[in-house]
Design a protein around this nucleic acid. Sequence first.
DNA 1: CTGCAATCTCAAGTCCCCTTGAGGTCAAGG
DNA 2: CCTTGACCTCAAGGGGACTTGAGATTGCAG
Lengths: 161, 161
Amino acid sequence: MLGAMTDRDGRLAIGELAARSGVAPSALRYYEELGLIHSERTAGNQRRYPRTALRRVAFVRAAQQVGLSLEEVRAALDRLPVDRAPSATEWNAVARTWQRRIEDRIAELERLKERLTGCIGCGCLSLRKCGLYNPHDAAGKHGPGARYLMEEDDPEPAGTR
Amino acid sequence: MLGAMTDRDGRLAIGELAARSGVAPSALRYYEELGLIHSERTAGNQRRYPRTALRRVAFVRAAQQVGLSLEEVRAALDRLPVDRAPSATEWNAVARTWQRRIEDRIAELERLKERLTGCIGCGCLSLRKCGLYNPHDAAGKHGPGARYLMEEDDPEPAGTR
DNA sequence: CTGCAATCTCAAGTCCCCTTGAGGTCAAGG
DNA sequence: CCTTGACCTCAAGGGGACTTGAGATTGCAG
């Protein structure tokens, strides 16, 4: 039978980890190279991942969703033990910084949505004519960086229309 | 004076668009190559962007935040006119699909946060022991794809602990 | 006019995140 | 035993999103 390639200690072969995490073996090797996950080797030099790797991989994917680079993830994950399940304290430390990031991300998206929604709500094309328009953002003179989605185009040259 | 490189028609030179959008000229040329924005040329072959390009660029950056590829953005942007400001209808069509995406994205992040928060709240390490754990996800047998952040490791071999 | 910053075109390079391929080894069912 | 599928390493390839550099204009202040 082709079932779980899991040894008695519950360690996972790379294929097994791949199947369960939904991440390709090649990606897992890559993650390992980057130090995101860790394995031991069998006598025959094959990787055997501790079951905590499953959690770590899930973590990595989630992190990417939130927009973190693998390097950032590594930094976070480095604070967790390699082979045991994390203690409450260890986990909390990591989780808390995550929550902030996620919340920030959500807030950002909410703002974006507001802008879109507001504009649909009033059916206007020019936020200048719409209460939702942020006048602070009119000049287009501030340095580079994030812009508002609906930053208004310049006031039209006098006489147009 | 080095002020606005904007011709009487309100068209923007690439440097001007770059400064106002916070996006490098090289990136703008790249966007144009991909068809995200469009320009006309001066007699001397320099680009002149219509002011609507400002809106488009802002759109692109916002879209990237939400996790869309430039190709996806192009698809959305293709429904807007190149040179005029979009009509209410045109804009609404685009905006509505956006709202859905943003909402999905937010929901996804909320779920992620819930998992994290719940786990911090009860201080547990094993979601199996925690009401928030989703038993449906226990077997680890479903095909590849998205996994839960806190998918539990396999039940420990009987006798452990 | 002139000078100098801003543009132009291309080709090539970079960073991130992986995938593919070649050539060889391991391990378990028949 | 032997075959077959899972693994291994290492080098190279690939896509996305840009940046950089070289060499050649363009165009506006003075």
